[in-house]
Design a protein around this nucleic acid. Structure first.
Lengths: 222, 222
DNA sequence: ACCGCCTAAATTGTCGACATTACAACTTTA
DNA sequence: TAAAGTTGTAATGTCGACAATTTAGGCGGT
């Protein structure tokens, strides 16, 4: 199983437009802070304004765009404070996710999670920095899903993660700190395996806090 | 200032329909789990299907309804597990909000918060149970806003709080435990006034955890 | 030159009609 | 009789046109 197990496969035309727009925004093909003209996008994507409006509505749900009545929609603008605030929310939610995962993950899921880390260890040892993106994501996703908390999953997977990815891509930040992050992952998994809710939450929060501090450092000296 | 400072005043027709639909859903005038037929609502509210669709989209953003492609929208169904999960998210987010409030609230805001508690103390002493709803809400809202974290505010105020209110109304739960909750509020404010982030978060989390336990007890013996 | 008003263009909001999909009832067949 | 296929109806998805609002520019006045 991979991250793309979530591959929200588009059934309707608005779905496809939404996914494409989201990709374009996250990747920066549509600049942050820019205006989303309905008529313009309607022409560009060869669909009616209705589906564009539908797509924009969903983008608003993800907090990727902001709409004002009778004025229009703009892509959110990226600010250092915004990224910090995002990480604060992430720390709170993923900390709770780790706590709940320690309580609710099945033994099989924990075994699989350990196996995942072993795989990552190989790739890290081989010097492949491939770990950066996919590996880190996979780890966090499994714990989020392991929480079995629908609200938590929704907010993180459909909301915050796309926003963070947008920041990563557009501010040109490389993935997380590879080797140290790997050790942190290992300790989180160990706590989950021990069913130690308190420790799992604390370790996950620190893991994310370190990431935040790392990012703050990079932001201050570009 | 009151809670209704947030009164999102409707400018467009879809706004009004959204607010009315949300009220009807939260109050139970539209039953939980029931289907939202676009054509039906279009006739009922005397607006075109386009504005109904727009309103339903926003309800989906609040997690009050769920939509499936080509099938339609249903009001979310209320389950004991759902409420528990909601409180878990709330614990994580409001805990972080209290931490950030201890860091970011202005001295004036803290003074006003203390004054608010004094007012509440009077009403509680006078035996008015009015405190239940409005007072508790006002307290939590101020701390959430005091966090100065836009994402936190968005998710809690526009999302989770309406859902919780829906549960409260429809499961017929009275407001929070009055007297004990008041003491808990006092301690949280004290920690914030002392700029003790760690303690503020811990106390707020416990406050919400107690609420959750209280609710679980009521759910198991109706 | 600056400010306010007014007009015109462009954009968003709303509408009704058509296309497409899902669901149910009925028919057919093994 | 049961299962599969078919057809009809009702719902959602999509479209183009019209209405209402915002915005930019020109015009006139001070």
């Amino acid at each position: 199983m991979t991250i793309a197990a979530f591959t929200e496969h588009a059934v309707t035309s608005a779905d496809k437009t939404f996914l494409q727009l989201r990709a374009d925004i996250v990747e920066g093909a549509i600049a942050a802070g820019s205006k989303l003209s309905e008529t313009e996008l309607s022409a560009k994507y060869q669909v009616s304004r209705a589906v564009i409006r539908e797509a924009i509505n969903r983008l608003e749900s993800c907090h990727l765009v902001e709409r004002k009545a009778n004025i229009g929609a703009r892509v959110v603008s990226l600010t250092p404070e915004g990224l910090i605030q995002l990480y604060q929310v992430r720390e709170a939610l993923e900390g709770m996710a780790a706590r709940l995962a320690a309580k609710n993950m099945s033994d099989d899921e924990i075994t699989a999670l350990k196996a995942l880390l072993d795989n990552h260890f190989q790739t890290v040892k081989d010097g492949e920095s491939y770990y950066q993106e996919a590996g880190d994501l996979d780890f966090h996703y499994r714990i989020i899903l392991g929480s079995k908390n629908q609200h938590l999953i929704e907010v993180l997977v459909n909301g915050i993660y796309h926003l963070i990815r947008m920041y990563r891509v557009q501010l040109g930040m490389a993935g997380p700190r590879v080797t140290t992050a790997f050790d942190e992952h290992k300790h989180v998994v160990q706590a989950i395996a021990n069913r130690d809710e308190e420790l799992a939450e604390m370790l996950m929060r620190r893991h994310i806090l370190y990431s935040k501090n790392n990012i703050e450092r990079k932001l201050q000296q570009p």
